[in-house]
Amino acid sequence: MINKKQSIAILNSTAPFASTNGKDALDLALIFGSYEQNTSLFFQGDGVYQLVKKQSPDKISTKDYLKTFAAFEFYDIKHIYVCAASLDQRALSDDFHIDNVTVLTTSEFSKELHARKIILRF
């Protein structure tokens, strides 16, 4: 059950490396996690590119913040949602670089988002 009062959604809508949006979203998620806030991550639009396997940010001299996603369990981030339509549009499979990701239809995705008290979009 989601505690609506305090639940936080972090909505990722941008691809990982050209902007700092993804890294900023991650930093915020880890801070909320450290303070035991009920935080869920949402990936939609180009945000789904953050979950693609076998990326090599070192080739473009960028820090690999995606590696940190695997540590979410230690920050109590249990809910990670991805929009299926966004994957389809980009010809991506549901084979991600982290486990425990839930793929939702567009309408399920929207309903989960509406269940959160605070929504922060990156």
Partner: peptide, 21 residues
């Protein structure tokens, strides 16, 4: 080893959780 695996230094709460595991 946490840093090498996850590319971030763990804050205290994450550190205790990971050490528990």
């Amino acid at each position: 080893s946490f840093y090498l695996q996850y590319n971030t230094s763990p804050a205290i709460r994450a550190l205790t959780k990971a050490m528990k595991a």
